[in-house]
């Protein structure tokens, strides 16, 4: 019975495309078509002239960059036949292909056809231009933002963590801190902005306070709920084995609460991004948030898109960093959410 089933060819083999049978061949074709798509973007940018009376300085440069990428992808696709390391690129193929299509469409409706109004919708090469001509100011902005965010976030996370542990562990700490937390916590940190800017000696320190506040609230609440939710059996075990109060807090309550703490850290990180941008726009006069607003003020929309793009990379990078830290620390957990 089973041998009969085995003899019937599977549909994919029946279809006659013998060439597609091996997965190596299929991935080679996939890789090469991605490379072809990018060379099409390059050719299209280079040989279809820009709209008259436009003066995009980096049309050629953008075309060359796309061509170089196409070449690199072709080489990688060919290398994938022999080297397993390159085969991982195969997973990205559909995305790389879609990205090429998107850039081609963007290029067509802006620089080539002029369907979208300027200066609000600049072509891709205008953003390349910003990256090349204004990288100094952008780097300064990244540095200023990172410094502010790191200081505020770490401060807020540390204070929030300690406060959360204190409320979760000590009844007296809970009695005093809990009402304050309930009253002030839900208030958006940005509501403190006007007050913070005249109470604090500098807008920098005011912004640190606001970012720390925005981070601290979720970290406190989640740490607290994590500590409060620790199974009492965990404490019984440790107590019968001779654990001190200190041991119960540091080696039982805190490790057991860590999954909750990380949820708080993620929420805090999201909040801190929002407050960072607002603080930079309204008071700090430095950083990517300020650059965004400055660019908008000068109608330099390409600069604005460039800064937005950078910000997206940075925020996403930080979230990724936090996720990998969590995966490392909480590797004992089953079924972690993958970022």
């Amino acid at each position: 019975m089973s041998s009969v089933i085995d003899e019937v060819p599977r549909p994919s083999e029946q279809s006659g495309f013998g060439f597609f049978e091996s997965s190596t061949t299929r991935s080679l074709i996939g890789g090469l078509s991605v490379a072809a798509a990018w060379s099409m973007v390059a050719a299209f940018t280079a040989f279809w002239p820009d709209r008259p009376e436009s003066d995009w300085a980096y049309t050629g440069g953008f075309a060359i960059a796309c061509g170089a990428l196409a070449l690199a992808l072709a080489v990688a696709a060919l290398a994938g036949v022999r080297f397993v390391a390159f085969q991982r690129l195969q997973r990205l193929s559909p995305w790389l292909f879609a990205l090429a299509m998107f850039l081609a469409a963007w290029e067509a409706v802006t620089a080539k056809l002029g369907l979208l109004p300027l200066p609000f919708f600049p072509p891709p090469q205008a953003i390349v231009e910003v990256a090349i001509d204004d990288w100094g100011r952008l780097a300064e902005g990244i540095f200023a933002s990172a410094r502010l965010l790191a200081t505020g976030y770490l401060l807020g996370a540390a204070v929030g963590f300690v406060t959360g542990v204190a409320i979760g562990w000590s009844r007296r700490a809970g009695y005093w801190i809990h009402p304050v937390l309930r009253f002030i916590g839900p208030l958006p940190a940005t509501a403190w902005l006007p007050l913070a800017f005249f109470v604090f000696p500098s807008s920098f320190s005011a912004s640190i306070f606001l970012i720390a506040l925005a981070t601290g609230f979720p970290v406190t609440v989640l740490t607290w709920s994590g500590i409060a939710g620790v199974k009492s059996a965990y404490y019984d075990i440790a107590r019968t084995l001779g654990a001190t109060q200190r041991f119960l807090v540091l080696k039982v309550a805190i490790p057991a609460a860590m999954p909750h703490v990380f949820v708080g850290l993620f929420m805090g990180l999201g909040n801190s991004f929002a407050v960072l941008v607002v603080a930079e726009m309204l008071g700090v006069k430095a950083g990517l948030g300020w650059y965004l607003q400055w660019a908008q003020g000068w109608a330099a929309y390409a600069n604005m898109y460039a800064a937005l793009l950078l910000m997206a990379f940075l925020c996403s990078g930080l979230i990724t960093l936090l996720f990998s830290l969590r995966d490392r620390l909480l590797s004992w957990q089953k079924g972690l959410v993958r970022w």
Binding site: A233, Y234, D236, I237, T240, L241, V252, P255, A256, Q333
Partner: peptide, 15 residues
């Protein structure tokens, strides 16, 4: 610690 309990549930620390 001279009197140790083994509970019905092993209650190992998962971390």
């Amino acid at each position: 610690p001279s009197r140790v309990v083994v509970f019905q549930d092993p209650t190992l620390y998962p971390w």
